[in-house]
Write a protein that binds this DNA or RNA. Sequence first.
DNA 1: GGCGACGGTTTCATAGTGAAATCATTTATA
DNA 2: TATAAATGATTTCACTATGAAACCGTCGCC
Lengths: 152, 152
Amino acid sequence: MERGQPGFLLSQLGAHAAGRFAERLKDLELSPADAGILRLLRTAAGISQQELSSRLQIHPSRLVAILDNLERRQLVERKPNPDDRRLYSLHLTKDGGEILQQIGRVAREHQDALLSALTGEERAKLTEMLQRVADAEGLTRGVHPGYQRMGK
Amino acid sequence: MERGQPGFLLSQLGAHAAGRFAERLKDLELSPADAGILRLLRTAAGISQQELSSRLQIHPSRLVAILDNLERRQLVERKPNPDDRRLYSLHLTKDGGEILQQIGRVAREHQDALLSALTGEERAKLTEMLQRVADAEGLTRGVHPGYQRMGK
DNA sequence: GGCGACGGTTTCATAGTGAAATCATTTATA
DNA sequence: TATAAATGATTTCACTATGAAACCGTCGCC
């Protein structure tokens, strides 16, 4: 990849953005994967670990430890599934919901800082272009390829 | 980070682009860090490992193994520095120069595939915006934050 | 000439990784 | 209904990557 070229820039900036965001999340003692899980559970309450792991592309064996941690901190709850005793039914707790709000705040701050060099109009154009590229590449919205390796 | 928002998109697409590029590099049996090193050595022939590691933000102890490998494959040469016998003077070999050309080819293919959803005009606009953001964030051109953890 | 700093390398302790094994439970099959 | 196969969550294990610190030879300074 040549420097100054969009491919490299994209990858470079993406890694930078992810790193900066991860740093901000550390204030909340959360990893990016933690945040992704909490966010997904808001809209997909009750899903199983299996389903969670396949949606976010996190290895099931890794998910065990992550959920253990989130449950210990009472941000997530593993409820039994009455229909299938093998499955857990995962839910956000009250605390989990509240921390999710903080995550949202952090994300907005992060984004504003990151894109301060662009006008509002440019941000919209950038978002639209990036979304188009992401769709063309078959990326699922909200699923970060790095979740596979951003557990801690 | 909310989905569909530029911050997340950037990070998501960046990771995707880096992953795809790394896959293509595998055909040449190179890691992204390998490619970064070869590329830098083209314009900065003769530098020491110390200097290389600080420019690319690669840990010195990790650099040893990477250079061992590149030297074994005769893509890079460690010459003694006559002025200071502690320092190596790193150089691309003939083979290294040739593989660098192949890397360039792979990078162009990668980039074309990645941005196929955008017109030429849009690509230029995207590049310009990304460069502006990268500059504002203080990123050094050609230095990927991920080199720190993309040795293999 | 001796002493602290420096470059490159090695060692080491730690942590993260996925593949495969395990165990309970459910579904399919006959 | 009995038995086999599949599934979900977890644990175990072998492998790799990581940086900190120790190490050795060399340099610059006083």
